[in-house]
Each structure stands twice: as structure tokens, then as C-alpha cells.
């Protein structure tokens, strides 16, 4: 009859991760991750490694964004690169053709991402959840082909000459400055996604993932919340797209194939759906590993595909699963008060 939390983990399936999580705590982990990201250039600040690091950071942002949709809400989005493309193209076109600063394009990108999320999610989320998967797949193609066909998006050759990042008069276009700017933005994005995940809305997403009917019975409008998750994912993807354009200064339809969507999904699945530290590590792993294994380039996508199957069969919770555990402080068994009920 004691309310103290038992020392021994109650679930036997993930003792190591539990211990790790207990030892470190998500917040402390976050600081460690940030410190590693900030110190990395001191180890190697060549343009090549900075670009790898920047790409990895952007990939982290994409993965935590997709994690909102897939990990929290349990919806499979296979066209996530589309939002990434929308962000990159909208800001790229505004910046090159109309000479806007990248910061000024943010509201437009947000609006475009939300709109796209509503157009795709609106009709599809009313149906069985697996329909979303294939419709998003089609959506990814629609966006890519449209970018390929339109003149304003530069057709197959895309847009080039996208300006670097400049925030409040501060020029952040040098590789090092840009990397640090990206790290800060991505860190905020990671924290933001994690905070959403721990809020009323984030809980509702998980309720939907676990049991849609039970969630609905608790007064949760599951359709609206699924749409909210999808739109939140769109926003994260769109914002990452702006940074992507700023990093490469040139974008083309080839940058936004299904391969991208699949790799982001792999990062989320491998790391552990719904788990912020897992997804961040998964993203770093998926984006940096190919750089280390350049010789094995032919094998890596095959291996990634097999990995998806193997993880789902043998370890569906991923390598660093999200934990259902809360600290419950020692409590005296309180006297049952009937008047404490309030509607």
C-alpha cells in the first residue's frame, strides 16, 4: 500500500533504456546533446564536416517533426519530404525572385505548410488511418512533379542563388555561423516538439495512437487532433526546408524524392517512435552513417529497407524507446473526500 515508486522496473522489456533514462533524464540528455553539437566544430571545422554536421542537424529537425505525426499520433506519413520541399521552394522563390530575406519568408512558409496539411490531411484523416500513408506518398510525388514542371520553381534545374541566413542584421552565411544558427534553431525545434508531446495535446495524440475509440469516448475529437498532429509535422518540415535552401543555396526537385521521406521515417523508427532522444540519435545515425560508409553506398539503402523490417519484427519500440514512466512522489493515502469532485 505504498505509493513509493519501486526500484525495480516494472516492465522487463527495456531495463537498460529505463536505467539510462533514469540516470540522465530527458532534460539533462538534451543539454548533453546540445553541448556535443556545439563542440563538434572544435574537433573538425573543415567545410566538409561542417556541411555534414549541418545536414545532420536539419535531419534531426525533420525527424522530430515527423515523430509528432508517426511517433506521437501513430499516423504514417510517407510524403514528409513534401513539406520540406514546400518550405524550401516557397522561401527560395520569395528570396531569389522577389528578394525577400529568409526570415521574412517564414510566415508565408508557415501558411503554405498549414494549407498543404489541411488539403491533404483534411479529407484523408477521416478515413482508415492507412489511407493517409498512401495519399501522402502520392502527395510527395505531386509536389515534386509540380516543382519539376513549373517555371517559377525553375523546372528540373530548380532554384539557385538562395541567400544565406541573416537574422536581425547578423550575417550568418559562413559555414560555421550557419551551423551554429542551425543548431540553435534545431534545438528549439526539438524542445518544442518534446514539449508539445508532453502537453494536453500531445497526450491526446498518444491516446489516439493507443486506442482511438477509447480516446474518442473521453471526449477527444480524434479527427481534429489527428489533423493538428499532421499540421504540426508540416510546420516542422516547412521550417526545416527554409534552412535546407539556405544551406545549399540551390534546390531542385531531385532533392525531395521519396527516398528522403523514407530515410526520415527510418530515423524515427530506428530511434524509437515517440521518443525524443531516440529520434534525435536515429536522425544523426541515419544522416551521418552514409558519410562514414561512402564505399558501401550501393548497399546502404538495401540495408535500410531490411533494417525497417527487422526493427518492426524484433524491436518495434526502436533502439531507444519512449518510456511510460512518471515519478510519483511518496504520498500518504489520502482520505477519500467525496466533495472533491468537481465537474
Amino acid at each position: 500500500m505504498t505509493w513509493n515508486r519501486k526500484k525495480a522496473p516494472t516492465s522487463a522489456d527495456t531495463p537498460r533504456a529505463r536505467v539510462l533514462n533514469r540516470l540522465l533524464g530527458e532534460r539533462r540528455l538534451g543539454w548533453i546533446g546540445l553541448a556535443v553539437a556545439l563542440l563538434a566544430p572544435f574537433v573538425d571545422a573543415s567545410n566538409y564536416s561542417l556541411s555534414v554536421l549541418t545536414s545532420a542537424a536539419l535531419f534531426v529537425m525533420l525527424a522530430v517533426g515527423l515523430n509528432i505525426v508517426v511517433g506521437y499520433c501513430g499516423l504514417l506519413d510517407l510524403g514528409y519530404a513534401a513539406f520540406f520541399a514546400i518550405g524550401a521552394y516557397v522561401s527560395g522563390v520569395l528570396a531569389t525572385t522577389y528578394g525577400w530575406s529568409l526570415l521574412a519568408t517564414v510566415p508565408v512558409v508557415l501558411a503554405a505548410a498549414v494549407l498543404a496539411g489541411v488539403i491533404i490531411g483534411g479529407p484523408t484523416l477521416r478515413l482508415r488511418s492507412d489511407y493517409l500513408a498512401i495519399v501522402t506518398l502520392g502527395f510527395g510525388e505531386i509536389i515534386r512533379i509540380t516543382a519539376n514542371n513549373l517555371d517559377i520553381t525553375g523546372g528540373p534545374s530548380g532554384i539557385y542563388g538562395i541567400p544565406g541566413l541573416e537574422l536581425f542584421g547578423l550575417d550568418l552565411s559562413s559555414p560555421v555561423a550557419f551551423y551554429y544558427a542551425v543548431v540553435v534553431i534545431v534545438a528549439l525545434a526539438v524542445v518544442g516538439a518534446a514539449r508539445l508531446g508532453r502537453s494536453r495535446m500531445g497526450r491526446a495524440w498518444r491516446f489516439i495512437r493507443e486506442d482511438e475509440d477509447a480516446a474518442e469516448a473521453m471526449g477527444i475529437h480524434t479527427y481534429k487532433l489527428k489533423l493538428a498532429a499532421y499540421i504540426a509535422g508540416a510546420v516542422w518540415g516547412g521550417l526545416a526546408g527554409i534552412l535546407f535552401g539556405a544551406q545549399l543555396s540551390a534546390i531542385s526537385p531531385q532533392s525531395f524524392t521519396f527516398l528522403w521521406s523514407a530515410l526520415i521515417l527510418l530515423a524515427v523508427v530506428l530511434g524509437g517512435m515517440g521518443s525524443t532522444p531516440g529520434v534525435v540519435l536515429g536522425a544523426v545515425f541515419v544522416s551521418v552513417l552514409p558519410e562514414l560508409l561512402r564505399d558501401a553506398a550501393d548497399y546502404r539503402f538495401f540495408v535500410f529497407g531490411v533494417l525497417l523490417i527487422v526493427v518492426m519484427i524484433f524491436r518495434p519500440q526502436g533502439l531507444w524507446p519512449s518510456q511510460a514512466s512518471e515519478r510519483t512522489p511518496a504520498r500518504r493515502p489520502e482520505v477519500q473526500k467525496e466533495d472533491a469532485w468537481q465537474a
Binding site: 508517426v70 492507412d130 529497407g305 525497417l308
Partner: peptide, 22 residues
């Protein structure tokens, strides 16, 4: 869960495509 199976299907598709590429 349905999500796991869908993800597996994506993995299978990927493996077949890039297996054939190999």
C-alpha cells in the same frame, strides 16, 4: 499494430528496389 505492418511494407519496398539496384 497496423502502423508496424505499414512500416514493414515500406521497408520491404525499399529492400526490393535497392536489392534490385545491387
Amino acid at each position: 499494430p497496423r502502423l508496424s505492418v505499414l512500416i514493414t511494407a515500406v521497408g520491404a519496398s525499399f529492400a526490393l528496389e535497392y536489392g534490385m539496384r545491387l
